[in-house]
């Protein structure tokens, strides 16, 4: 599964990190880093992350 975060929208809210810690995390400066080719077993988590992103910046492609 391909995960895309629109970094122009993302404001480092970090809500995605709680929902899908295997895919999203914060670096030392508090900025988002994420795995863009996430394992398909994590789909539910990533969908949840996409739901809770306040900026609706997360898309799942295929």
């Amino acid at each position: 599964m391909k995960v895309v975060v629109d970094m122009n929208k993302c404001q480092d809210h970090g809500q995605c990190v709680f929902a899908a810690p295997d895919v999203f995390s914060m670096d030392d400066e508090g900025h988002l880093v994420y795995v863009s080719d996430a394992d398909d077993t994590l789909r539910d988590e990533v969908e949840e992350a996409a739901d809770v992103c306040p900026l609706q910046a997360i898309r799942i492609e295929a």
Binding site: D12, H13, G14, V17, F18, M26, E29, G30, H31
Partner: peptide, 10 residues
């Protein structure tokens, strides 16, 4: 505060 504070709450 800033982003670091918000992450502190988390």
């Amino acid at each position: 505060g800033g982003q670091a504070a918000a992450m502190g709450a988390a």
